[in-house]
Design a protein around this nucleic acid. Structure first.
Lengths: 167, 167
DNA sequence: ACTGAAATCTCCATTGT
DNA sequence: ACAATGGAGATTTCAGT
């Protein structure tokens, strides 16, 4: 129970999961700390198969990670910004360099490569506007090869879930 | 251990947390299933205060939820789309109606109200382009009061983390 | 594959400093 | 406030069906 997930086969194709596996996943997505016992009662199975199915899904990489979600405002991180970035040059090394920096900056909690006029979309989290200004001026814009940067400020959170459901 | 978090004071002001609380949070964010014992060894405290601190942070709402992250591709959800929406009318009831629908649609995993020319940004997850087309035509566009809709397709995931770190 | 039970380990309340 | 202890309950393994 203390150990974190080890194996994580490269994110490729879908794994075959039956209805019971999906039911287990739904419960785990809602609460990473549900007990095997509780799951087994809800889906009418004994603990052994439930435990084995969970282990199997951890090893096949269906289950990526168990995480704790922290309220950003409660730890004084009050600003959420979507930031669009285009690079001047699109060589492989130029992109790799940018990606390396993205992974170092802990203000950047998400980064996607996207279609359209920009190359990347970043989700940035900061204490306040001063902190974002500092990030923008002293980190992002300091990068060589930086093209346009455009910020969209998030005014309110309507929905945030991690529950993946088919259909 | 089986129970989910109950209290969750409305998301308002920062809560005072010391260095040890933050260290506990870092460990819990990385792995929601670390044991109290393991945390207590890493931060050089006995289990009692660690357990009490965690309970305190659950009750004050600093810890929002323990969740399991599932690999979307492994369960055959292969398309991730950022979707911008503007409404024609901005009355309170028109907005509330839209928000209600957003919460019903499980394809929408995130929704923010944003600054700029659009009103909302949605993150939508689907099996494939056909499924997204169906969502777009039969759900989103069917909404009354819908203004412009613009889709940005995510081609690659560079970074996705939930680890909040002070800056 | 699933059941049931046994063995091991963790949680968590109590007690004491 | 923190350390140490011990019973309750969970996980995890192993036999059997």
């Amino acid at each position: 129970m203390a150990k974190s997930i080890k194996k994580e086969k490269s994110s490729e194709r879908a794994v075959s999961l039956d209805k019971k596996d999906m039911a287990i996943l739904q419960l785990l997505q809602q609460n990473a700390r549900v007990t095997v016992k509780e799951i087994s009662e809800k889906i009418h199975l004994s603990t052994t198969p439930v435990h084995e199915r969970i282990k199997g899904m951890e090893e096949s990489g269906v289950i990526k990670q168990y995480v704790t979600l922290v309220d950003q405002n409660k730890i004084d991180l009050n600003l959420l910004v979507i930031c669009y970035v285009s690079l001047k040059e699109h060589s492989k090394s130029a992109g790799a360099n940018f990606i390396k920096k993205i992974n170092e900056w802990h203000q950047v909690i998400e980064c996607y490569s996207i279609s359209g006029e920009f190359d990347f979309m970043l989700k940035v989290i900061c204490k306040d506007m001063n902190a974002y200004y500092d990030f923008h001026v002293n980190k992002l814009s300091q990068q060589e090869n930086m093209g346009n940067v455009q910020s969209v400020f998030i005014m309110g959170v309507i929905k945030e879930t991690h529950q993946l459901v088919h259909g």
